[in-house]
Design a protein around this nucleic acid. Sequence first.
DNA 1: GCAAGGTC
Length: 689
Amino acid sequence: MNRLIITEKNSTAKRIAEILSGKDYKIKKIENINVYSFYSKDGDNVDVIGLKGHILTLEFPKDKNDWLNTMPEELLWSDIEKKPISEKYIKALQKLGKNADEVIIATDYDREGELIGVEALDVILDVNKEIKIKRAKYSAITEEEIKKSFSDLLDIDYNLASSANARSIIDLIWGASLTRFLSLSAKRLGNNYLSVGRVQTPTLALIKKKDDEIENFVPEPYWEIYAECSKGGRNFLAKHKKNRFKNEKEAKKIKNAIEKVKEGIVTKIERRMIKTEPPLLFNTTSFLKAASSIGFTVSRAMNIAESLYNRGLISYPRTDNTSYAGMEINKVLVMLSKSDEFFSYATDLLDKKIDINKLKRGKETKDHPSIHPVGYETREKLNDQDWKIYELITRRFLASLSDPSIIENTKVEIDINGEIFHAKGSRFVDKGWRSVYYYKNIEEVLLPVLVEKDRVIIDNIMLEKKKTTPPRRYSQGKLIDKMETLGLGTKSTRHEIISKLYTRGYVHDNPLKSTKIAQTVIDTLEKYAQDITNPDMTSKLEEDMYSITEGKTTEEDVINESKNLLSEIFETLRENENEISKELYDRIKDEKIIGRCEKCGGDLIIIRSRKGTRFVGCSRYPDCDFSLPLPKKGRLVVTDELCKEHGIKLLKVLYDNKKTWNLGCPYCNYIEWMNKRRENNKSEISKKE
DNA sequence: GCAAGGTC
């Protein structure tokens, strides 16, 4: 009998073949894809193939491809076709499926995994209707789990696959129709289109909202009173117990009253032990957050993690798990105890004989284990960035197994002529896990030895004026975290969604700032199509998907309900079509004004020629011919910052390969370029001489 | 040239 096993990715195909064959398998290539082949104990021939995630994608029929000749709302009621993403996987599945008596779907144990399995199954049923179908569900790729799942095979959960299918159709219809409507209204076609989506738009709205808060923030002054104290030659700082004074007079009055006082009395000392439990193991979100805080962009961090995974150095980087499930702690520790960098720490942990049952913390999910090291490579053999990521993951793993960190906090109350001041100190009692995971460094504040009724010398009383600060923008890491909290995107897509916002010219910088275009898009959508700007759309979809899975409703019903809602939105959009178009077009046109013409005082605008070239020109052309060159390639992003010398908005250029060039002021850039050219000419001339 | 979801 021929048995075919289909997994979601190559790495699990290989691992499953290893486990089920006892490492006795051969690799054959079909359509240049690895297939792991072996004989089972019963003498059955088994082939294991790993796919590359989804093998099919959704598409509108060709006649709907012309944006200018299709009403965006026509997409709501259009057919949707399923098209292969890569032909070779389809061909390979057909070849293997034709000769198989039984197929076991062994894709990941989640919604999308079930759909990927059904996609593969549909391809196979086309060529072999008689085939027997089974499903293997495993919650970790450990020997025990895999063996158990293959000896206890289940059936395909078609409802679960259906729920994922509904999601994909709804995403395409909403995304494509609204993207086209906005792009057409704003006359932004070609690669300048204005994208809209269930996940990207609410994410962008978060960033824009933060920008609004900062824009509207009015700083309020407040005052703080500090006392510079000393005891036994040791200086320390105490702060008035009221902390912030909103009233300057009140603060001044206190300062004046105690300014000449030379001594204070310690009236109270409070000591508290603060125990901080070790951090949980990394899942994708917490990993990206940590990588972001040490200076990586989330895309870069994810790329490196993928590459470390492919080299066998870390476990699968896309997971929601933060528990120890599916992980062999001692094996990892033994491996690390042989490493140059971590041997002493790992050895100590091994000696401690950690009780795994006491480590049952974190969220246990049915997907891959938490991100942890599975191999080791010396620092020299990895490049700097790869090492930093590997080190971060390894230190986190070690930290999670370590003791809590204990800090002693001391609060000293000092009476200065009736005014109460507080001095705060902190020192490590036991660094615990912080000695190996030292990324969030905590500084000790040491106070002199004090007891109640001690007299301390007051060297100086200071009144400091401060201002309340606006909220902080989202860093990439914080945004990933926020997206997870709101249920936006998945562990695998969140970083891609953020990159997408950059390449669309919707955001720039890190922490993220929204561009004018983004602000206009969000304002328009919030006015006329609020559902798509709201994270609730995702929560609602999640509920609907759950109902489909439970059999309480159908894929068709959910899609129709969603289409009806979108159809109502389109009615509103059409009613306000002219206004929307004018608003989008005008505000984005304003975006093109980047400064004032030094020759005539007109507006400097980014002008695009029909040939696709562009330059900075004066709005009073042909009366004024002032112009500045711009690079031919890449997407221009206009920032809010102005050139200090020319008052022109600074520009950035985004390239397809995701590289960014901070062009800055186009005038400065032009001058620099001219100077360089002059230098080159000079050297050319001198060479000739 | 649209989305989001997989995976590399």
